[in-house]
């Protein structure tokens, strides 16, 4: 287990997540892509913390902030999906051609 291996794994997770976020039509699936990208980021953060920071607690703090970002993304994302669905009965990105209403 080396830092290089960890970072490559996290790059793979990030790449898959980016593919999902760009290719999926459904809002919910799109958010899954974003979550997977954040998953890769989390792994990279923990890897850097363990291998280069000599246990500096600020690295763990960053990881906790990433988790908070995931929670915020999910909550606001779902709220927007509900709001959009209420207005347009739409659950795919293509249905949103205007930001009005």
């Amino acid at each position: 287990m080396t830092l290089t291996a960890i970072l490559i794994v996290s790059a793979a997770l990030f790449g898959i997540g980016l593919f999902g976020a760009l290719s999926q039509k459904s809002f919910v699936m799109l958010m899954m892509g974003l979550e997977l990208m954040l998953n890769g980021t989390l792994l990279a953060t923990v890897g850097f913390w363990a291998f280069t920071l000599a246990g500096l607690p600020k690295g763990q703090l960053l990881a906790i902030l990433i988790m908070a970002v995931m929670a915020v993304e999910l909550a606001i994302g779902f709220a927007l999906v509900v709001a959009v669905y209420r207005k347009r009965q739409a659950d795919v990105t293509e249905s949103l051609t205007t930001m009005k209403n």
Binding site: L7, I16, L18, F19, G20, F51, T93
Partner: peptide
């Protein structure tokens, strides 16, 4: 339920390859 499929695959692969190359060519502090 997908759109811009090829572009997305390209973007995913490019980000993976780019990040991996960056990781492999950097002398990471230990």
């Amino acid at each position: 339920m997908v759109h811009q499929y090829r572009f997305s695959i390209g973007a995913g692969v490019a980000s993976f390859v780019g990040l991996s190359v960056a990781v492999l060519t950097t002398a990471l502090p230990v």
